[in-house]
Nucleic acid binder design. Sequence first.
RNA 1: GCCGAAGUGGUGGAAUGGCAUACACGACAGACUUAAAAUCUGUUGCCCGUAAGGGCUUGCGGGUUCGAGUCCCGCCUUCGGCACCA
Length: 825
Amino acid sequence: MFGQKGVAAVAADSTVYEAREIEERWRRAWEKQEKHRAADKTARPKYYCLDMFPYPSGAGLHVGHWRGYVLSDVWSRYKRMNGYEVLHPMGWDAFGLPAENDAIKKGIHPAVGTARNIANFKTQLQNMGAMFDWSRELNTSTPEYYKWTQWIFLQLFDMGLAYRKEMPINWCPSCKTGLANEEVVDGGCERCGTPVTKKNMNQWMLKITAYADRLLEDLDKLEWPEKVRKMQANWIGRSVGARVRFAVPALGEQIEVFTTRPDTLYGATYMVLAPEHPLVSALTAAGQRSAVEQYTAQALGKSALTRQIQDKTKTGVFTGAYARNPLTGLDIPIWVADYVLMDYGTGAIMAVPAHDERDFEFAAAFSLPIVPVIAPIEHSSGSGAPVAGELAQAYTGPGVLINSGVYSGLSVDAAKRQIVADLAQSGMAEETVTYKLRDWVFARQRYWGEPIPVIHCDACGIVPVPERDLPVLLPDVERYEPTGTGESPLAAIASFVNTACPACGGPARRETDTMPQWAGSCWYFLRFADPHNDREPFARDKVDHWLPVDMYIGGVEHAVLHLLYARFFTKVLADRGVIGFDEPFIRLFNQGMLTLNGAKMSKSKGNVVSPEDLVVKYGTDTLRLYELFVGPPEVDAEWNPRAIDGVHRFLSRTYRLLMEAAPSAPRAESQELAKLRHRFVSQVTERLESFRFNTVVSAFMEYVGALQSASEKPDRAALETLAVCIAPLAPHLAEECWQALGHRESVFDTSWPAVDERFLVDDTVEIVLQINGKVKERVAIPQGASEADVAGVASEHARFQNALAGRAVVKQIYVPDRLFNVVVR
RNA sequence: GCCGAAGUGGUGGAAUGGCAUACACGACAGACUUAAAAUCUGUUGCCCGUAAGGGCUUGCGGGUUCGAGUCCCGCCUUCGGCACCA
């Protein structure tokens, strides 16, 4: 059935482990058998194990990339052997800037370069021997796929979640092109190093902030690493506080601020507006105008990097205007300073230098008054309350209000509520929630991406492309270089741009911006459920059957961006009623990086280890096993070029043991080997379940060692169990040995061995005799012996007794089958 | 600055509060070999001692416990994330 003759011939010939020959033969057999196709309809429960699909770069895969794919494959095969129908697909995140930049550099069309890279990646992944279901392969840059990416955009547009806004974007003046945030490295352009400036442009935005609360709350539903959930929570940055309005009586204006500390309102001694704040110009007094204009011009000229990261020295200028503190009724000066950011809160703050570190620094620099209004608890009673001159730094801790009129004496928490409630009476404040999360800039002025499917009509405005007209094809053109005007290269293609308005039929222009690289990866996991559907993005029953993803494996570098965007799309589609779940990934596992010489492997650093040479030298199974053995899967690990020899030696030993013993293995299983076997299965299962793959490999090494040094020849059960258990890790070797053991069906159609608990207990156990917690003696006693029995045994051991001589016994601790500890004085 | 993770032999690492250093790499010694490679066997935490044996040891300092690599408190170092978010 699986090429029996070939197997038999090889098995009879030799017990030398010829990995390459075995692996190629089984890979072909499995391929022919379509062994890795996931069936949509089956009696088995489904299990969806997904890798973060790769961006097919020109550099190819190195051993670091293998790590995650090996983990997911081991896990998929293990789940299959536990009775699940496993969906383990693979595809290509094929739109994106590297392909486009490469194309510009080399003059090769991005579609051509991408196709070549995909072919290379696919060969590499197939070499790995992973059970990917290639019949579901997808590519985000094909019209068959991006038609539905565009369809999803139309749903977002229809739901009011996609909108246009004037936004400053990153701009490289040398390359004359807009850049994605991820292409700005240390304030400079990734390609040429030129400092990035801002350019104001009309942008497509997605209203991800509308989902901020749900994205935050639903993190609790997920079995994700704590670290990633925290990173997402911090990124969303929910902050509960109040909006408070300060009147500017001289101008009849109001300034609204956001604060999380309304309790400190009595300590607000000045206000600050961001340089971009719309009221700056109106508020500025004549005498201050030139100073303010000079300052704002200078602040706006700074890049975000210099303004927010590199230089935190406080600068600012007085506007000459005053606002009235709504509680104290006192007028306080209004300043402009770039430490206040326009795009958070309201772009204006009330400054409480006594209780905010940034305000303190600013007040100190410009000699503004610092009035303490919170006293730490220990100072609240008596006369020890701090006075202004004593403060060396801002106090941000808990405490009790002072210098705050009727509110003095209240706790911070009580005052927050009370002050907002009182101001709300006169409409001067209300409670509110603010997020750090911003709406998502969803447009790129680039060629190699999904065209945004809308049409601009002078008469009708923005009109979505009708669904029947999808996909809006990316035109196949000779020139895809940036135009230099800040427009997409598509804008220069008249045949693409000029079209008819779907609403009125009049002349209209297509949107020429494309979607960012993240767009395709926001929903590819859904498409795998029904990858060839040409009538809809996926059939409802299929997507609801396979999804959500049970196990998602990939690098931690996507902790926020991709994983947040994908969760957002999933919730939108759930709200739209096209899927029946609102979280895409139940369980997430982040594999650690592989380093060489302490650095992340990368082609530019020249420290990549290529899997090809290793596969040729040792075989795929050896490399797979070494990727697991290198260390705990979630921890970064240094590649040790020599350590792989040990793993290869182990597999050769295993192969030889199985092949030599197979023909004459006894049927009957001895007590000794049965114990060894059940203990081994129990250990391997437990370690697999808890993702401790490095220790899984150790368990195999110990078992094989024990079988080799056992007093009897290994029986059939011992050999079969070994072959079955190692199958998820070293699938080719396992299948070969399984056939040699006389089986006609695949090892992956057998089930994972069960453990009989009775074999896990020993008749005699070794326990330690301790004095004051120090081990003095080890003795063998019958399992389950009583404390009295053990004390009796202990009394017969001279060394133990000598150590006890002349000392008073305080107490004895007995842990059955483990230890006996005598505490003496 | 804030948040998080991690510090165990020469190296990668193992250890539900109960025998620290499993498993492997490397090193050393031996077997096989004309020799080498491969393979196999043995030794290998540190200190004192010829030995028997003894002492010490999980970044540092305290604590809880009969007993701590593991739990608690305070530090140090390294790495990662966020970073003027009011």
